[in-house]
Computed example of a mutant assay.
Amino acid sequence: MSKQNNQYKKDLAKFLIRNAEQDSRDEQAAKDFLLSEDFNVDKLIIDGLKRIKKMQLLINARSTELEMEETTQAKSEAIAWVDDLLNKQNFSIVELVRTEELSLSFRNLDSMNETDVRDILIRHFTLKFMNKGKRDE
């Protein structure tokens, strides 16, 4: 009897799936079926769209979190890199501008103090490390 019972369940499942597929291919037939089963179709649609929107917002929030973590890590690396670079005896900002192909006006370069140079280099290397990380992925 168990074998017969299992076969009955399989046949019923196949029947329901076949009918569900047939009804769901036609939007109006699907709505009519849901209405006949006392479902509020408009509420289902609104709730479904709200759920999709919520999931999209959560995905975007997580993506932003990951970008912020990446930025924080890249900035930490850049700060360490720049501090090490500035502490070297043979450091030359002019040579660094050439090798890194930085776009700086040499007129402004003369008027910059050490903090300005450090800030510019940190921004440059943060972006460089972030781009390198994206390329590695």
Rank of each mutant, 00 (worst) to 15 (best):
Q4W: 06
Y8C: 00
K9C: 03
K10G: 01
K10Y: 06
D11E: 14
L12V: 09
A13H: 10
A13V: 07
K14W: 01
K14Y: 06
L16Y: 09
I17W: 07
I17N: 08
I17G: 04
R18H: 13
N19S: 08
N19M: 12
A20P: 03
E21N: 12
E21A: 11
S24G: 14
S24A: 15
D26M: 07
E27V: 08
Q28L: 12
K31F: 15
D32G: 08
L34H: 11
L34M: 15
L35F: 12
L35V: 15
S36L: 15
V41M: 10
K43C: 04
I45E: 08
I46V: 15
I46Q: 14
I46L: 14
D47L: 09
D47G: 04
G48E: 01
K50V: 04
R51S: 13
I52P: 03
K53R: 15
K54T: 09
M55V: 05
Q56C: 07
L57W: 06
A61T: 08
A61F: 08
T64H: 07
E65H: 08
E65D: 13
L66K: 10
L66A: 07
L66W: 06
E67D: 09
M68A: 12
M68E: 13
E70K: 13
E70G: 12
T72P: 00
T72G: 04
A74C: 13
A74M: 08
K75W: 01
S76H: 06
E77I: 02
I79R: 09
I79W: 02
W81G: 00
W81V: 02
V82A: 06
V82Q: 05
D83F: 09
D83M: 07
D84G: 15
L85E: 01
L85S: 00
N87V: 00
N87I: 00
N87E: 14
N87F: 07
K88N: 05
Q89M: 03
Q89G: 06
Q89Y: 03
N90K: 02
F91D: 00
S92A: 05
S92P: 04
E95W: 01
L96H: 13
V97F: 02
R98H: 08
E100F: 04
E100D: 05
E101W: 01
L102P: 05
S103N: 11
L104P: 04
L104N: 03
S105A: 02
F106T: 07
D110Y: 11
S111V: 09
S111D: 11
M112I: 02
N113C: 03
T115M: 09
D116K: 10
R118D: 04
R118Q: 11
R118K: 15
L121Q: 03
I122D: 02
R123A: 12
H124P: 05
H124Y: 14
H124I: 01
F125R: 05
T126I: 04
L127S: 14
L127A: 10
L127P: 01
K128I: 00
K128C: 03
K128F: 12
F129V: 03
N131S: 13
E137H: 12
